[in-house]
């Protein structure tokens, strides 16, 4: 086997960081699902909260993007 232990660590780390994307997916799904549940209970208030929905999704997704970034950094930049 070629390569060194550092490279092994990089790839393992990148793979672990990839889990974060899945966690962010759970978060985004949670936000969207709760929005939908609320919207079905009170459809008249749904339209006014679309902006809040997108802000919530953006915040949840940003953290997933951070983990993706960590993975990319480990793969290509370290």
């Amino acid at each position: 086997m070629e390569g060194d232990i550092a490279q092994l660590g990089q790839f393992i780390g990148a793979g672990l960081a990839g889990i974060g994307s899945g966690a962010a997916a759970i978060g985004v799904g949670h936000v969207a699902g709760n929005y939908l549940a609320g919207a079905l209970r009170n459809p008249s208030a749904a339209a006014s909260q679309t902006a809040t929905l997108f802000i919530g999704i953006a915040f949840a997704e940003a953290l997933g993007i951070f983990s993706f970034l960590v993975a990319l950094l480990l793969m290509f930049a370290v």
Binding site: F59, E61, A62, I65, F66, L69, L72
Partner: peptide, 15 residues
């Protein structure tokens, strides 16, 4: 977060 959200999303999709 404001910058990485945008840049990361676009980069991730393209990658």
């Amino acid at each position: 977060s404001h910058s990485i959200r945008l840049g990361g999303n676009i980069m991730a999709g393209h990658a």
